[in-house]
């Protein structure tokens, strides 16, 4: 009698308790929306040209004319932070999208068909997982060049393995459900079962993962930047941080590194928080429906 089970009143009485995402989620979501909108509309916003030198003085501190100050070339840091978001978010979004399209599909195929197909895919995933992600990224970017699509694709490839694993596990769990058996008895084809019955269920954790994945890839892109492997043209937050973090710049104008760091920090935090809340929200919902 060591561990008596706890009573969950809601579950016991079959009451579907209304779930909420909470205030924190909406703050996080608001931040994400602001930053995405600002990044998307950057060319049309009434801000300085991020590459124009001499907008302010060199290494001006934050103030009314340049909110985030200027860098050693006199470029406006506020404009640069917004423009930097473009690259960071594009890399984050498209790499995760690639990871989900490829990894999600592979995982579903492995989880649904099982057997030899599953063994081949799972083995490839293990190999990919065993290979250090950063080394892989170094290899690809080094060989294929430092353009935006290549960087995004590289990080996307690194994301395939973990996403495939999650997708496979989710698919396996749902394949056991009787509604899948019911669909087969009705005469549904494998493709129809995967698209109509499994996909909507697998997409939910994937959706939450998109946000978490973006957070990870934005940081990872920063990591690449430190190795000098970020995009060559244009700049991301990561590249800005690198540019702002020489000892001299840090001493004379810490804001040059601080604002992109801050932007990245808050964005990653918001993405993680929102993603986690979403995941929890849908998990609980799943329980409410009564997972066996």
């Amino acid at each position: 009698m060591d561990t008596p089970p706890q009573v969950d009143p809601a579950e016991q009485f079959g009451v579907v308790v209304a779930r909420r995402l909470g205030f924190g989620f909406w703050i996080a979501a608001a931040w994400i929306i602001i930053i995405v909108t600002a990044a998307a509309l950057a060319p049309w916003l009434p801000i300085a040209d991020p590459n124009e030198t001499g907008v302010g003085g060199r290494m001006d501190g934050p103030g009314w004319s340049n909110w985030f100050g200027t860098d050693s070339n006199g470029r406006d840091m506020f404009a640069r932070t917004i423009w930097g978001a473009r690259v960071s978010l594009i890399v984050g979004f498209f790499s995760v999208l690639l990871g989900i399209c490829v990894g999600g599909t592979l995982g579903m195929i492995a989880g649904y068909f099982r057997g030899i197909v599953d063994r081949i895919i799972s083995f490839s995933v293990f190999v990919l997982l065993a290979y250090p992600g950063l080394v892989l990224a170094l290899l690809i970017v080094g060989l294929a060049g430092q353009t935006l699509p290549i960087v995004a694709m590289t990080l996307g490839i690194v994301a395939i393995a973990p996403i495939a694993r999650l997708s496979r596990a989710t698919t396996l769990a749902y394949s056991e459900r009787e509604f899948v058996a019911a669909a087969r008895v009705l005469g549904a084809t494998d493709r129809r079962i995967m698209v109509r019955e499994l996909l909507p269920n697998v997409l939910i954790p994937m959706g939450a993962l998109t946000l978490l994945g973006m957070a990870i890839t934005i940081v990872a892109e920063g990591g690449l930047a430190f190795l000098g492997l970020s995009v060559e043209e244009g700049f991301s937050w990561g590249k800005m941080i690198v540019l702002g973090s020489s000892p001299r710049t840090l001493r004379e104008g810490p804001w040059v590194a601080m604002f992109p760091i801050g932007a990245m920090f808050v964005t990653v935090l918001a993405l993680n928080f929102a993603g986690d809340r979403l995941r929890e929200y849908f998990d609980v919902r799943e329980l409410g429906i009564g997972a066996a």
């Binding site: 009787e178 005469g187 019955e197 269920n201």
Partner: peptide, 23 residues
Amino acid sequence: LRSVRPRVQMIFQDPISSLNPRR
């Protein structure tokens, strides 16, 4: 086999697991 499936249908034990929660 698929084409004769509609002739034999089945209902399952767990009423919740046998319906797709997303549809």
